[in-house]
Amino acid sequence: EKADRSKPVNIEADRVTVDDKNKIHIFEGHVVLTQGTLTIRSDKLVVSQDMEGYQRGIATGGEGGLARFRQKREGKNEWVNGEGERIEHDARSELSQFFQRAHVKSGEDEVRGQYIQFNGATETYLVTNGPNATTIPSQQGRVQVTIQPKKKDGAAAP
């Protein structure tokens, strides 16, 4: 949801290191970040703030080595669930990027790949089979996208 990004970020963890020099907070151990309807669970979470103070989080590791992401869709009673070895979430641009073993399920739609970028503002995806948004033509790692036909309003994700 759009309103999430201006809300304060609540974080629970076992440890945190406040690094003054680099102006970052490093949370470690059973990390749970919640901001409005957004939740990210991981082993480690590095939170930094850009000039305007928008938070940016990099979550790595978690159960089975995967960090998990969950956010309610704008104005719908549907949830976006995502996981990846690393999840980067940028509150300002509302971009959530999933790296390695990336998998995002939103309602009935499902996307898998090495890299998925989910734009929370436009609720659109970019998925590639190579790491970091690169595409590897002949590689057997394929992209799988399942988009259910929309019954009602028909705004299918591309």
Partner: peptide, 21 residues
């Protein structure tokens, strides 16, 4: 000197956007 504070055990944080301007 290293500019580091380490907190441990039941860490609960509420981080607000500190608007520098």
């Amino acid at each position: 000197i290293a500019g580091e504070v380490r907190l441990q055990g039941q860490v609960r944080g509420t981080l607000y956007r500190n608007s520098p301007t």
